[in-house]
């Protein structure tokens, strides 16, 4: 790769990071409002609390009942504080799992909307088993007997995002990102300098196009103008309806075998005797 290509790639990767985090970018609530009808929000994990960082409930996409679960960063400062800026606690992930199990019972497809800088790192989160909550979601989602689609609409921050992204298909908006670590975190570990995040963003291959090429996501949805998401909503709504109605026709064993294989094949290594 030439130096100018590397520079262009670096700039592109980092501009996506900025776009994914931009203030005013539509959140899960916007998507729920624009692509579903009759949304009924359901609260609480039935164990500890209701985590504002995760919104969940039941709704319709056209005539199809679905369960929708979204990580919500909040619109405006007051709401963002209440929603902990989309950094969920264990009770948020447990609420999500409760609603997924409910969806399984009624054989409703599950839509997960992912937008988080990561699962919350704090005393309460650790005390209540952040790692265990995420692990359980990942494991249970792998064999949830109903179709699941995860759509990354903004930031896909590591395990906190994956806890809602074990699905039959994972889609990304054009300016969404998905990464094992934030570019700042990566740069500070690697070069002891968080300011080298642009460089890190390029190496991490966190853009939607990169991840499509790697087979980590199935679809990238074009965005157009950041001010007008109406075409995004329309596209997503139509795609979801089509994908869910198709998936509902599949025998459950086939659906689950395909879901397992989707993740099973991911990896890159050499094998010698």
């Amino acid at each position: 790769m030439t130096e100018s290509q590397a520079t262009a790639e670096k700039e592109e990767s980092y501009s996506r990071v900025q776009a994914a985090r931009a203030k005013g970018r539509p959140t899960s609530q916007n998507f729920i409002e624009q692509i579903t009808e009759d949304f009924l929000e359901l609260h609480g994990d039935r164990c500890y609390a209701d985590d504002g960082a995760i919104i969940g409930g039941i709704a319709r996409i056209y005539d199809l009942p679905v369960t929708v679960i979204g990580i919500e960063k909040g619109r405006g400062l007051q709401e963002s504080i209440r929603r902990n800026f989309g950094a969920a606690h264990p009770e948020g992930y447990r609420k999500a799992l409760r609603l997924m199990k409910q969806a399984e019972k009624f054989h409703r497809p599950v839509l997960c909307l992912v937008d988080t800088s990561g699962a919350y790192c704090g005393i309460g989160a650790e005390e209540r088993g952040q790692g265990q909550a995420i692990a359980e979601n990942i494991m249970e989602m792998m064999t949830l007997k109903t179709p699941i689609i995860s759509l990354l609409i903004g930031e896909g921050g590591s395990g906190g995002a994956l806890a809602l992204a074990v699905a039959d298909q994972v889609w990304m908006l054009e300016n969404a990102i998905y990464s094992v670590i934030s570019p700042e975190g990566c740069a500070s570990i690697l070069w002891k300098d968080a300011k080298k995040m642009q460089e890190a963003a390029r190496y991490l291959k966190l853009t939607a196009r990169d991840l499509l090429a790697l087979g980590v996501v199935e679809q990238v949805i074009a965005e157009g103008s950041p001010k007008d998401f109406s075409s995004v909503y329309n596209t997503v709504k139509a795609m979801l309806y089509q994908q869910f109605t198709q998936a509902l026709k599949k025998p459950t064993e086939v659906l689950l075998a395909e879901r397992y294989q989707r993740f099973r094949r991911i990896g890159s290594f050499r094998e010698t005797d």
Partner: peptide
Amino acid sequence: GARMQEGILSLMQMAKTSGAVKLHSD
């Protein structure tokens, strides 16, 4: 934790291993 130098593929190993654990458990 997940190995940063292998990026998203490291993250995906969490799902891959958990899937295998689940099938063993089931």
